[in-house]
């Protein structure tokens, strides 16, 4: 069993480790280590196109994840209050938002917005693809993801504490803020971080709906097409470290959630 598991971990980690190692290589050569250097990191961070793309990605990822966390949580709570038939319909729509391939979401959003913008142009309102279309298209998947995670958490909550809060005279809103929300918080935060990571890593949706903007994955993709350079290794390493930090955060939060579930 050990050799097999070890081989799987090697398979998963060796290729990325290689990219990380070569990002610190002094030379340009991609098959030979000639010394340690941070020059490629300096080059990458001094590249205005890259920092612009990074800024776009951060703005889009943060906004879409924040909106998804808020609206997804609201939707999860609203869905709990629906009758069985409407709830099934809502579940189906949310599932569709998760399983429809990104390439189709990108195309469909592009087509629909192109049509909508043409209509608006006729009445003198000029709109373009950009931040808003990126945030909306990324947020669609993220919102459904948050709704799914939070809904699972709500289902596992005991009704007793809510009823106890009512019995003690707390109005519904106070019960929500003081009793329900604290129990949902780890799930909402984990959903936020997953959404952020999804948006930050997405290439294919952004490729269609970014308009004249460039996100970080779009920039990296375009650079790779121009040729593999050590600078890309440095960028790739930084992207990896950022995703690792985010996902470590999400997993710590999820674990906390499980522990609470055991205690509660």
């Amino acid at each position: 069993m050990r050799p097999f598991l070890t081989a799987v971990y090697l398979f998963l980690y060796a290729p990325i480790a290689l990219v990380v190692v070569f990002s610190f290589n002094a030379g340009r050569n991609a098959s030979e280590i000639t010394g340690f250097s941070l020059q490629w990191y300096g080059k990458a961070l001094g590249n205005v196109f890259l920092t612009d793309a990074l800024r776009t990605s951060l703005i889009v990822a943060f906004t879409s994840a924040a909106l998804a966390a808020i609206f997804g949580t609201m939707a999860a709570m609203g869905m709990e209050r629906l009758g069985p038939r409407l709830r099934a319909a809502a579940d189906g729509l949310m599932a569709a938002a998760i399983v429809v391939p990104g390439v189709v979401i990108g195309i469909a959003t592009l087509v629909a917005l192109a049509g909508l913008f043409a209509l608006l142009d006729d009445i003198g309102l000029h709109l373009e693809l950009g931040y808003l279309s990126l945030i909306a298209a990324h947020g669609l998947f993220s919102m459904a993801l948050v709704a799914m995670i939070v809904k699972a958490r709500i289902a596992s909550l005991s009704r007793d504490i809510v009823e106890a809060s009512y019995d003690l005279g707390a109005p519904p809103f106070a019960t929500f803020v003081q009793v329900v929300l604290p129990q949902l918080r780890p799930s909402i935060l984990a959903g936020f971080l997953m959404s952020f990571t999804f948006s930050f890593d997405d290439f294919i949706i952004a490729f269609f709906v970014a308009g004249s903007h460039t996100t970080l994955p779009m920039y990296v993709f375009a650079s790779i097409r121009r040729g593999v350079t050590p600078e890309i290794n440095a960028i790739a390493t930084m992207v990896l470290v950022a995703s690792l930090l985010l996902i470590a955060g999400a997993r710590v939060l999820m674990r906390e959630r499980k522990r609470h579930a055991v205690e509660g």
Partner: peptide, 13 residues
């Protein structure tokens, strides 16, 4: 949960 683009790039490399 890490970038698919970067991981595919590693194999390109």
């Amino acid at each position: 949960w890490t970038s698919m683009l970067v991981r595919t790039y590693a194999w390109m490399y």
